[in-house]
Design a protein around this nucleic acid. Structure first.
Lengths: 339, 339
DNA sequence: CTGAAAGCGCTAACAA
DNA sequence: TTGTTAGCGCTTTCAG
């Protein structure tokens, strides 16, 4: 049987409330000897306060959760590292939940997190559980959104300027002589997820704005499953004129694009230029290092967690929700042609 | 204020113990109407039982933790996925802790996990907190070790047959005409961590056994920091005769090796062959696809979690601890030469 | 079939 | 400066 505060009190010959005071750092009204005594007994007994009991009473767990769409996504893992570091520096525990972009999973997590009385939630949401998120946020469990903005949820949001990112990318491609640009994005037409919509929209707008040749077929809505992607690319290459550059709307998509081209024996950039949205660890070390539009993911994660913890500490008071945009950055490597 | 079991009882016009029965699926002694009524009230009120209170009383949290040395390590992330899946299938929650191979961090996690009354721990330990782990295991929080075996801790362990892995690797290199093989491993002489010791030992033994030329300088003990690694490689190449192949003792090491060689303009395998222990996602897509000795990481993670949950369910009864070895597999790509 | 009562381990007034 | 007391929200005998 685990040792409890009562055991400590008994062994020290004092009452448990004094021990409790000690545990909570209220030494002001405690004799020096008592304090010494308690500290010694605790060490001897290897006493560790039961966090469940404490949290039950205090109504706070000092634990927050990050619910992400996929831990395979390098952008997410970097974001998490930022969030994690900020937590650590501020004495919070972090629970990581991988919702796999599945609304049902996401909702299940929200429920168990709520039942575990988590203090706050950082989430890159599927956008399908807005009521649940709103009600959490309203009922005292602060929620901060990152990467994906959902106007219906009045919560702090940290994301990137998607239009700027696409603009950076397209201008870079143009500078390398590319005019026929295909854009690969996850299905977005009936998805509530904003980044893909914003990026696809920006692509369309900018292609028009810059007077580039356009084709419906060049806005490719597809999963990043490599078999499927492979077919879509074949279709694309069967038509004339073909695009000369492929622009992936996020890291996973670009990674698949690179692999599919490699498996087809197509060289980058000689046979096809490739540009990605989001950077990833291996991008510089591939056969052809990949040029990308990168988000400052680590900082964004830190910042999102900073806001979350601030909300928790301020008890989520009246402050209106803030929407913050970070600037993406173009990292030029070699996949769009030399120069 | 959150809704409690009392609110539900009151709204349903019954006592809270009946509601509790309902929550715990004990419908046997409950009228059908009561049952209906409760279910309806719960839905209306959006009642979610407080897991803290429940766990406090039941003395179990239905939550386990995985403490890993690094989430940047692809071997670990695959292992985690296996563990995660098994948890999910069995109704357990998983908390992921990244100890960063720092014994102090690890110990801190063990303490907070214990205080959170976690039901069990899966760990790839630094080997520096053996007493803590033993005492957890003995005092009712089952511990399962994976990847790293520590004889002093009598707990189930799931790991790979390291000697076999090194043998597979060395024989493959020999088959490609390599005889001067350098082995890159993290500092292990005074580290309690077994895999690196076993692998280094196996390297030494097998080099002797196969009558390969040996040199103290070819057993390179180094961190995988790229700057440092770069220096070590330069030193190695300054001497005659040079090795013709580099064997990385784990994924992170091999990844760094590949990057350092790339940055030096050395071609794989023409200028230097490379072989890795542990596979990783990008290994097949690099300039030269990397040949590796792979561990069945997903299965190992699943299996480790299976044992852990079994221990939890059986209340960690007398069963003697089991040590399981999985077989590694050679995945031939192109980094050791064509053939 | 349902309710009353005690208690899990801890905190927080309030008394002493 | 320390102890008493009353819960936090839930489960679990044990009566009825």
């Amino acid at each position: 049987m685990a040792v409890t505060i009562n055991d400590v009190a008994r062994a020290a010959g004092i009452s448990k409330s004094t021990v409790s005071q000690y545990l909570n750092g209220r030494f002001e009204f405690m004799s020096y000897e008592t304090r010494q005594r308690i500290s010694q007994v605790i060490a001897e007994l290897e006493y560790r306060p039961n966090a469940l009991a404490r949290s039950l009473k205090q109504k706070k767990t000092n634990t927050v959760a990050a619910v992400v769409s996929s831990i395979l996504n390098p952008f997410m893992t970097n974001t998490i590292r930022g969030a994690e570091d900020y937590c650590k520096e501020n004495g919070f525990n972090l629970i990581l939940c991988n919702a796999d972009d599945d609304p049902a999973q996401e909702l299940a997590y929200l429920h168990t997190l709520a039942s575990k009385q988590i203090d706050g939630i950082l989430i890159s949401t599927t956008g399908r559980n807005n009521e649940a998120l709103r009600s959490l946020n309203l009922s005292g469990t602060p929620v901060v959104l990152f990467s994906r903005h959902v106007p219906e949820i009045e919560a702090d949001t940290v994301c990137v300027d998607n239009k700027l990112g696409i603009d950076l990318g397209i201008r870079h491609l143009m500078a390398h002589g590319h005019r026929r640009i295909a854009f690969f994005v996850l299905p977005h037409s009936q998805s509530p997820v904003t980044p893909r919509r914003e990026r696809a929209q920006a692509y369309c707008d900018l292609v028009r704005e810059y007077g580039l040749p356009a084709s419906e077929a060049w806005l490719v809505e597809t999963t990043n499953d490599e078999a499927i992607l492979s077919k879509r690319i074949e279709e694309l290459l069967r038509q004339e004129p073909k695009p000369t550059a492929l622009f992936g709307a996020n890291d996973l998509m670009t990674m698949s694009l690179v692999r599919v081209l490699a498996n087809k024996g197509l060289r980058i950039p000689q046979d096809m230029a490739v540009l990605g949205f989001d950077d990833w660890e291996w991008a510089p070390y591939l056969q052809t290092p990949i040029t990308v539009v990168a988000q400052p993911s680590y900082e964004m994660g830190r910042r999102a967690m900073e806001r979350l913890i601030m909300r928790i500490r301020s008890k989520n008071d009246a402050m209106p929700p803030a929407l913050e945009h970070y600037e993406p950055e173009l990292i030029i490597r070699r996949s769009c042609g030399e120069r």
